[in-house]
């Protein structure tokens, strides 16, 4: 399936998806409410079959928080990048995809730990690396604590 076909298919599911292209992957920015539905469809549709989530990244772009899903199809051998963004820095939350790709369960815990993004319906939403009583989310751009040393 070519990139154009893929875009058309995603547009048919989520009309307000925005596409951008870089050298490697087709990238789709989708509204976070349709994330779970689209993800489920992408995995189960026989023409897309994205069955392998190989990376799940939390990003802080400064003003908005985002989660990036790198998908791959082991049968069709094509890749896709899904991106969801939110402006809500106080209480950001997205739907979990860990019921679709089981590996997401711990990737999402890591994102929660370091970015404070909650995932709805996640079975075990706890911090993964840091202590349970840690204050703040270290990988956010506005994170500071008394131990931060600024390099001039």
């Amino acid at each position: 399936m070519t990139n154009e076909d893929l875009k058309l298919k995603i547009s048919s599911q989520v009309p307000d998806a925005e596409f951008s292209e870089n050298k490697q992957f087709t990238e789709a920015l989708i509204p976070h409410l349709s994330l779970h539905k689209l993800a489920l469809w992408l995995k189960n549709d026989p023409e897309t079959r994205f069955d392998y989530l190989f990376c799940l990244t939390g990003v802080d772009y400064g003003s908005e928080l985002a989660v990036v899903y790198h998908l791959n199809s082991t049968s069709h051998k094509h890749d896709l990048v899904l991106k969801v963004k939110t402006n809500n820095r106080e209480n950001p939350s997205f739907d979990t995809v860990c019921d679709i790709w089981r590996t997401a369960e711990y990737f999402e815990r890591e994102v929660f730990d370091l970015f404070g993004i909650r995932f709805n319906n996640h079975p075990d939403m706890r911090r993964l690396f840091l202590d349970d009583d840690w204050k703040g989310f270290p990988l956010r751009k506005d994170y500071t604590d008394e131990h931060t040393i600024e390099r001039k």
């Binding site: 990244t57 802080d60 590996t103």
Partner: peptide
């Protein structure tokens, strides 16, 4: 870089 993420093999393999 603005953000660097390492998708490490052991992270997935552990769980």
């Amino acid at each position: 870089p603005l953000r660097v993420k390492f998708r490490t093999p052991n992270f997935s393999n552990l769980f």
